[in-house]
Lab assay of single mutants.
Amino acid sequence: AQASVVANQLIPINTRLTLVMMRSEVVTPVGIPAEDIPALVSMQVNRAVPLGTTLMPDMVKGYA
């Protein structure tokens, strides 16, 4: 199954992502693919992302 990017902590709005904030997990619905984690580093989220939330393309500025 495809692993997705999941928030490893609460990520406040406009925060630049770092590796420690993200983990890969097989979840439904599928979000951003886990292999994109390196590309997500330093991108900003456009909303607060609670712990355990799957990151979707529309949550990350410049990803989609």
Results as ranks from 00 to 15, higher is better:
residue 10 L to I: 15
residue 45 V to E: 01
residue 8 N to I: 06
residue 10 L to K: 10
residue 63 Y to T: 03
residue 17 L to Y: 01
residue 9 Q to N: 08
residue 29 P to N: 05
residue 16 R to M: 14
residue 5 V to F: 02
residue 61 K to R: 15
residue 8 N to F: 04
residue 2 Q to R: 05
residue 52 G to T: 02
residue 8 N to R: 08
residue 53 T to D: 10
residue 23 R to S: 05
residue 26 V to N: 09
residue 21 M to P: 00
residue 62 G to Q: 11
residue 6 V to T: 06
residue 17 L to N: 00
residue 3 A to W: 07
residue 9 Q to H: 08
residue 45 V to S: 05
residue 30 V to Y: 14
residue 38 P to S: 12
residue 3 A to C: 14
residue 27 V to I: 07
residue 26 V to T: 09
residue 11 I to H: 01
residue 50 P to E: 11
residue 25 E to L: 07
residue 44 Q to C: 05
residue 36 D to S: 14
residue 25 E to G: 10
residue 6 V to A: 03
residue 31 G to R: 01
residue 46 N to A: 09
residue 21 M to H: 07
residue 46 N to C: 05
residue 23 R to A: 05
residue 12 P to R: 07
residue 64 A to H: 14
residue 29 P to M: 04
residue 40 L to H: 00
residue 9 Q to F: 15
residue 4 S to R: 01
residue 24 S to K: 10
residue 48 A to N: 13
residue 62 G to L: 06
residue 40 L to W: 02
residue 5 V to Y: 01
residue 16 R to S: 14
residue 24 S to A: 14
residue 56 M to L: 12
residue 24 S to N: 08
residue 16 R to F: 10
residue 54 T to S: 04
residue 26 V to E: 12
residue 52 G to V: 02
residue 58 D to Q: 12
residue 38 P to N: 09
residue 39 A to I: 15
residue 46 N to I: 12
residue 64 A to G: 10
residue 42 S to H: 09
residue 45 V to A: 06
residue 3 A to E: 10
residue 17 L to P: 02
residue 39 A to Y: 14
residue 33 P to R: 11
residue 43 M to G: 04
residue 35 E to G: 08
residue 23 R to I: 06
residue 55 L to Q: 01
residue 5 V to L: 03
residue 23 R to T: 06
residue 52 G to I: 03
residue 28 T to V: 07
residue 60 V to F: 06
residue 12 P to V: 06
residue 20 V to M: 15
residue 10 L to Y: 15
residue 30 V to W: 13
residue 21 M to K: 03
residue 43 M to E: 07
residue 4 S to W: 02
residue 18 T to P: 00
residue 59 M to F: 11
residue 20 V to R: 14
residue 28 T to W: 05
residue 23 R to W: 03
residue 62 G to S: 07
residue 18 T to K: 06
residue 23 R to E: 03
residue 61 K to A: 12
residue 17 L to T: 00
residue 21 M to Y: 09
residue 10 L to M: 12
residue 8 N to T: 08
residue 21 M to I: 03
residue 37 I to M: 12
residue 55 L to V: 10
residue 2 Q to I: 10
residue 43 M to W: 09
residue 30 V to M: 13
residue 62 G to R: 07
residue 53 T to M: 15
residue 52 G to N: 13
residue 42 S to P: 01
residue 47 R to P: 02
residue 51 L to A: 14
residue 18 T to L: 06
residue 20 V to E: 06
residue 11 I to M: 05
residue 7 A to V: 08
residue 41 V to T: 11
residue 50 P to T: 12
residue 44 Q to H: 15
residue 10 L to D: 11
residue 14 N to Q: 12
residue 17 L to W: 02
residue 13 I to P: 10
residue 9 Q to A: 12
residue 42 S to M: 11
residue 29 P to A: 04
residue 7 A to M: 04
residue 15 T to N: 05
residue 33 P to L: 12
residue 62 G to F: 12
residue 41 V to E: 10
residue 50 P to Q: 10
residue 37 I to R: 11
residue 42 S to F: 14
residue 5 V to N: 02
residue 57 P to R: 13
residue 38 P to V: 10
residue 40 L to K: 01
residue 64 A to Q: 13
residue 32 I to W: 03
residue 30 V to D: 08
residue 60 V to H: 00
residue 34 A to W: 08
residue 1 A to R: 03
residue 5 V to R: 02
residue 2 Q to A: 10
residue 29 P to C: 05
residue 35 E to P: 07
residue 44 Q to Y: 15
residue 26 V to L: 13
residue 56 M to H: 09
residue 12 P to E: 14
residue 6 V to F: 02
residue 63 Y to K: 03
residue 56 M to Q: 11
residue 43 M to F: 11
residue 42 S to C: 08
residue 10 L to T: 12
residue 26 V to Y: 08
residue 57 P to G: 09
residue 55 L to R: 01
residue 7 A to T: 13
residue 36 D to H: 11
residue 24 S to E: 15
residue 14 N to M: 15
residue 26 V to Q: 07
residue 25 E to S: 06
residue 49 V to L: 10
residue 39 A to L: 15
residue 6 V to Y: 02
residue 58 D to H: 09
residue 25 E to A: 11
residue 22 M to D: 01
residue 53 T to V: 10
residue 45 V to Y: 00
residue 14 N to A: 14
residue 8 N to Y: 04
residue 29 P to W: 03
residue 53 T to P: 01
residue 61 K to H: 13
residue 38 P to I: 14
residue 28 T to I: 12
residue 57 P to C: 05
residue 13 I to N: 08
residue 25 E to Y: 07
residue 15 T to P: 00
residue 36 D to K: 15
residue 39 A to W: 14
residue 15 T to Y: 14
residue 34 A to Y: 08
residue 32 I to C: 03
residue 41 V to S: 04
residue 35 E to Q: 13
residue 37 I to F: 03
residue 55 L to H: 00
residue 63 Y to F: 06
residue 25 E to Q: 11
residue 39 A to Q: 12
residue 57 P to M: 06
